[in-house]
């Protein structure tokens, strides 16, 4: 499959995110009903599914923005429990990009990118700024460094958000519908950056509705519904030969 050539060139490493029978309730609503999955180093996993299927909740459990109630989550050898120190350690190694960007509006773009490295990683300011400028260049927006988030377009803001996460030199990147709040013409600039990131060997878990991205970049696609993984497999399996009726129905509705 020519489309997936880039993905297959990456050599996958050891398991880095392990989730086993993860369950989560919001009040009496069960959002996750036992999710078991393993992500390996340098792997790009795309998570799709209808809204309310628990896919966002699942990746928000990976860095404990939501606390799971049953099952185990192990990230880079650290089990996520009530231990605050472990949670902080995991968070400093897992970057996250949100649908609504969530940039800090009172700080310049460069400060957005360099604040966490200085306070969390205790990096010297000059070093953090040099690295931050490098990231902004990589994102194609070095000239915006001294502006405030409110002065940028949505696509630019989302690229700043990606740079902010990368500034912490994470081992894993989580993307929670990164393009859903963007105008169509801005989606491409963000997806291009994400593709580049995937090529560079970053471990990525991406919740998205961009099927093009899934088929080109993903190593594996997980299809969520009612809080469980209904079907998983390579993109070619998934898009050409889905097994479950629910998956077929979903694909027929969006493609």
């Amino acid at each position: 499959m020519t489309e997936n050539e880039q993905a297959s060139e990456r050599v996958l490493g050891d398991p880095i995110v392990i989730t086993d029978d993860v369950k989560k309730w919001f009040g009496d609503f069960q959002a996750l009903s036992g999710v078991t999955a393993t992500v390996r180093e340098r792997e790009v996993v795309v998570i799709i599914g209808p809204s309310g299927s628990g896919k966002s909740t699942y990746i928000r459990c990976i860095n404990r923005l939501e606390a799971h109630q049953e099952g185990t989550i192990i990230v880079d050898g650290i089990e996520l429990t009530n231990d605050i120190k472990n949670v902080e350690k995991v968070r400093s190694e897992v970057g996250m990009v949100f649908q609504q960007f969530n940039l800090f509006p009172h700080l310049t773009v460069l400060d957005n990118v360099t604040l966490a490295p200085q306070w969390v990683r205790k990096e010297p300011k000059a070093e953090a700024e040099e690295f931050g400028m490098g990231l902004l260049e990589q994102m194609g927006i070095p000239e915006q460094a001294l502006k405030y988030p409110g002065q940028l377009s949505g696509g630019q803001q989302q690229r700043v958000a990606i740079a902010r996460s990368l500034a912490m030199k994470p081992k894993i990147m989580l993307f929670d519908e990164p393009t859903s709040a963007l105008d169509p013409e801005m989606i491409k600039e963000v997806l291009d950056v994400m593709k580049e990131l995937a090529l560079s060997g970053m471990t990525m878990m991406v919740v998205t509705h961009e099927m093009g991205f899934a088929s080109q970049v993903a190593d594996r696609v997980l299809f969520f519904d009612y809080g469980i993984i209904v079907e998983e497999g390579t993109p070619e399996h998934f898009f050409t030969n889905p097994q479950h009726d629910r998956t077929k129905l979903f694909l027929s509705q969006i493609l």
Partner: peptide, 20 residues
Amino acid sequence: GQTEASQAVGFTRSQYLRLI
């Protein structure tokens, strides 16, 4: 989202309250 973004980049509670 400001709290979540701060937690996601690894700030402790006192850090993100003060800085963000």
